[in-house]
Structure formats: C-alpha cells, structure tokens
Design a protein around this nucleic acid. Structure first.
Length: 406
DNA sequence: TGTACGAGAGGATCCACACCCCGCG
DNA sequence: ACCGCGGGGTGTGGATCCTCTCGTA
C-alpha cells in the first residue's frame, strides 16, 4: 500500500478500503465497488495523507491534511501546539457515491476534485455503472455509522422492527443538537438511523442493524452496561438494554461513564486517543474484539461529551473506524421508535433482551473465508476426532457420508 | 458472608494438505 | 520486463481440552 492506487497502479491513491485492505484512486474505487452488491457494502474512507497506508479519520483544518488515528495522535499530541488544531472527523462511505455526494460526505473535499478524479473513468465504465448515477443515489447511515450510498435492495420497507416509520427525515445533527457528519441538506435522500433505509424489511432491519455487530464489539454487554449502571443512579431501571437502545438514559449513563477531563473536544480526542491508538491500526481494531471494546468505550465517552454540548466540532462519524456501531453514538437507533424512557415498556425491553440473547446464542461469529477452495477441501476432508487425517488412513468422520470407518 | 462445587460457555489447539505467495533463475 | 519453477507458509473445519464465569448449596 502506498502512494499509488493498488488497483490500477497508475493514479495516486485517495481512499482506503478496509475490506479489501487496498488503497485506491477514486476512479478505481468506484469501479471496483460497483462490481456487485457485496463490494458496494465495503466501507471506505480517505487515505491518511501522512503515512499513506491507513484510513484517515480526521481532517486537520489548519494543515489541510487527512490523518489516520496514529498520525493524528502523533501530530496533534497534547504536548504540542498542534493539539489545538481544529479537526474534523472524516466519514466513511459505502456504495458508489457521486462526486457531489462525496463532497457532501467530506465537506472539505471539493466536488471539482472528486469529478476530476472520477473523470478518469472510461466512458464504458460510466455506462456500466449507471445504476449508481447521482439521480438514483441514496445515502443511508448503516449500523457502522457509514454513509451508505445507493442501497439498492428493493425490498418493501414494511413495518420497521419495533416501531413505526418516522415520517420526517431528521438529521443526526438535529437529533443530537450538534453537527453530525454529512448534514448537508442538499442530499435529498439522506437517511439516518432514525429513518428507515429504503429496502429494509422487518427482518432486514433487525438483521442488518445487526445486534451481532454490536455484540462483536461489545462482547460482554451485560458487563459493560452493568458498569454503566454502577455509574448512574438515573438508569437503575433501564440502563442495561436501554443503553443499547440509546434512549436518553444512555446519555445519562454515558456522561457518567469514565468522565473525561474537562476541556475541548479536541482535548477529549487526545484523551481517548490512546485507546484507539494503542489498538494499532484500524485493521487490528477490526480483528481485535478487546481493542474494539476499548475503542467503543472511548467513542461512547466521546459522544457523551458531545451530548453535553461542550463542543460542536465532533460528530457522529467520530472514530467510526474503530468498528463499533455508531448507532450507539446516536440518540436513537433505527429500530427504536422515538419514545421516552417511561414510555418504553419493560416487557418490550425484556423481549428485546431475550431476542438479543437468543440471537447471540444462535449466532455464528462471522468468519471470513479467504480461500473457498481450501474451505471446500476442508469440508470434505476425513477426520479423526475432528483432526484431519492422511489420505487413506482410517477415519472416524467423513463429512461427505457422515459415516465412520472405525 | 465466604467457600466449594458443578454446569455451561467459549476460546485454543490440533491435524493434513492444497494452494497461495514470493524468491530465484 | 516477463515467465516458469520450486519451496515455504497459510488456511480450512470438527472434536477435544482447557479456562473462566455463574449459579447453587
């Protein structure tokens, strides 16, 4: 990875795709990620302009550079004058956004620059990928807090899980009384968690929101929320799963969760930075549940400060690279109808807990199979007590026949 | 209240070998 | 610069073992 696009090897790389672990120019990014529905789901972000190897997560207004967590931490150390630099979080995106949408996602990113980059695409590519043309693009905020462009699942929205459809489109910023990522109202089809992403049916909503994802990052949610409860007398009744639901109690609990030192949000960023930085790269974050928990905690604390209104700089996309669902940073998750604590029936809550536990029980940890051919071989390989045996040796388990030779 | 024990959950490990990757000629 | 070859390392799933947590006596 480096300065040149990993795909074309020609143009300078601009964005980083974690799923592909690749640095791509905008043209190739668009090209590669329009290939199929799965690739469209890859979340990408700008490439750190300092190390050119890690996804950027903040934009330094003073230096006009995009920085990854490590470079930001190194360059804006609290001990230096740079620590006061005004920094803006960089949002991830998925799908195939147009130049205008990219500039909306990244306000500092001029549309002309995007167009210039995207203009490198061939005409045929443009035709081929016409489906994600600007007129059809939609942007959804998925569970990872990623701006998801052009959700092309044409499934009836149906009734959202656990609530009614929200008739109006509210921005996260409105909801949180603070800037929250791309709040450009020019995006006429901008969907936030409070709203339903078109194409998500009940199950889709439930599954796609993905309790699993939350759980992947919050391996022991009871412990986590238990700790929250210990810190907050206000959430004695509803702290646990309600924290997950992100009702106002969450904020009350959040504000009590590892209260950061008073100061600007930048200071707080620095305060919490070690949690993320120590987790090394974002990739390691993604693969390290423990680190993700740390990172989530940091983000959670950060969001609590945002709610307190101490700063208007931070937004929902903060630290989204850490992998924890930013829904937890939002006031309300997409599946939760707007309601107050008191109006949230305890039975519904317990039902939610039950569903969560049930799903957790049946969940398989997502394991990415890198080589299908190897999996295919492993699937048919004979075993003895679960261990592979040499070809021709006696076996006690044959996946093909479900038989035992001895 | 503190201790001991059992049950259950979940992570780590092992195995063979096709194949990926990289260095070398 | 390109191609082919060879060798080392990797990844794959099920069973089992081990550790840890939780509930109960």
């Amino acid at each position: 990875m480096g300065y040149i696009c990993d795909f074309c090897g020609d143009q300078p790389s601009m964005v980083y795709c974690r799923s592909d672990a690749a640095c791509l120019c905008l043209s190739c990014d668009r090209n590669v990620h329009s290939a199929n529905a799965l690739s469209k789901r890859h979340s990408r972000t700008l490439l750190c302009e300092r190390c050119n190897s890690q996804p950027a997560f903040v934009r330094c207004s003073e230096e006009k550079v995009s920085l990854c967590q490590n470079c930001d931490w190194m360059g804006h150390d609290a001990s230096t004058s740079n620590s006061m630099h005004n920094r803006q979080t960089i949002n991830c995106y998925s799908g195939c956004p147009s130049s205008g949408e990219l500039s909306s996602i990244w306000s500092f990113f001029s549309q002309s620059a995007c167009e210039e980059e995207l203009g490198l695409m061939s005409i045929s590519e443009n035709i081929e990928s016409n489906s994600w043309g600007p007129t059809e693009n939609t942007i959804c905020w998925n569970s990872a807090g990623v701006a998801e462009v052009n959700c092309d699942l044409n499934v009836d929205m149906g009734n959202g899980w656990g609530g009614t459809s929200v008739p109006e489109i509210r921005s996260a910023a409105q909801h949180m009384d603070q800037p929250a990522g791309p709040t450009d109202t020019s995006l006429t089809k901008l969907f936030y968690p409070q709203t339903k992403c078109p194409g998500l049916g009940e199950d889709d909503l439930y599954d796609d929101f993905n309790m699993d994802e939350v759980d992947l990052n919050l391996e022991n949610y009871e412990e986590l929320f238990g700790a929250t409860l210990n810190h907050s007398e206000e959430v004695l009744e509803n702290g646990g799963i309600d924290s997950l639901f992100g009702t106002k109690d969450t904020r009350a609990a959040d504000s009590n969760c590892e209260p950061p030192a008073e100061g600007s949000s930048v200071g707080l960023v620095n305060e919490i930075q070690p949690a993320c930085s120590n987790a090394a790269s974002a990739d390691s974050l993604m693969s390290n549940k423990t680190d993700s928990i740390l990172c989530f905690t940091a983000r959670h604390a950060h969001s609590s400060l945002s709610f307190s209104g101490l700063t208007g700089e931070s937004n929902v996309g903060d630290y989204q690279d850490c992998g924890a669902s930013s829904i937890l940073l939002m006031g309300e998750p997409p599946w939760c109808p707007p309601c107050t604590e008191s109006s949230f029936p305890s039975s519904t809550r317990s039902d939610a807990v039950m569903r969560y536990k049930e799903k957790k029980k049946t969940r398989k940890f997502e394991k990415r199979v890198r080589y299908a051919s190897r999996k295919a071989r492993a699937d048919v390989r004979k075993r003895v007590k679960g261990r592979f045996v040499k070809a021709g040796d006696a076996y006690d388990y044959d996946p093909l026949n479900q038989t035992r030779s001895c």
